[in-house]
Simulated assay, not measured.
Amino acid sequence: MRWLAMILAATLSLSAWALDLQQAKQQGLIGEQVNGLVGAVQGNAQVSAIVNDINRKRLDSYRDIAKKTGTSLSVVQSRAGQLNIERTPAGQYVQLADGRWQRK
């Protein structure tokens, strides 16, 4: 349970660039994935840059959490993905297990 709190804290601490992420999510350009990362629903170079930046920072946080808790990176990513998808507001995109994007 402790590492779950760490995932939540790490995800919330990503607000340093949340404005760009939130705008892109509200515009339907970026969505949350089951692996705890974001993906481009539709995009261009700017969207790809945001996705790459967010995912690099998330992976750094997830690796740190995995190391501190003795949990595998894949488990941390899976839990973060579940939390992020649950917290995604209606109208924004989430990726289904089969890879399709769906508006929540």
Rank of each mutant, 00 (worst) to 15 (best):
S78V: 07
I54G: 01
M6K: 05
R87I: 08
D64M: 09
A90R: 05
S48D: 14
I50Q: 12
R58N: 07
N35D: 15
Q95R: 13
R63F: 00
R58S: 03
V75A: 10
V76T: 04
A66Y: 04
R58T: 07
N55K: 11
A49C: 10
S72R: 04
M1Q: 02
A90V: 10
Q46A: 15
V76W: 00
Q77K: 12
S61G: 06
A18E: 15
K57N: 14
I65R: 00
Q23G: 14
D53N: 14
Q95L: 08
A16V: 11
A90P: 01
A5T: 04
A5M: 09
L12M: 12
S78W: 05
L59K: 10
L4F: 01
M6F: 04
E32I: 06
W3L: 00
W101G: 00
T71R: 13
N84P: 00
I7V: 14
A10R: 03
S15Y: 14
Q95T: 11
I50D: 13
A10T: 01
Q102G: 03
T11D: 15
S78R: 12
A90M: 08
D98G: 06
K67R: 11
V76C: 02
G31C: 09
G28R: 09
S13W: 07
S61M: 01
A80L: 05
S74K: 13
M6R: 07
K57I: 06
I54K: 05
V75H: 07
A10K: 04
R58F: 03
S13I: 08
Q102A: 06
Y93G: 00
T88H: 10
Q33D: 01
I54T: 07
T71Y: 04
K68C: 02
Q92Y: 10
A49W: 06
L96F: 02
D20T: 14
R58Y: 07
A45Q: 14
A24T: 12
L37F: 10
T71Q: 12
I30R: 05
Q42C: 03
V76S: 00
V34K: 09
V47W: 08
I7K: 02
Q95M: 12
L96T: 07
L19A: 15
L8N: 08
A80F: 07
K104C: 05
G39I: 00
Q82F: 03
S15D: 15
R103C: 03
E86S: 11
A10I: 05
S74Q: 13
Q82C: 05
A24P: 09
R56C: 04
Q26F: 10
M6P: 03
G99Q: 12
N44H: 13
K68V: 01
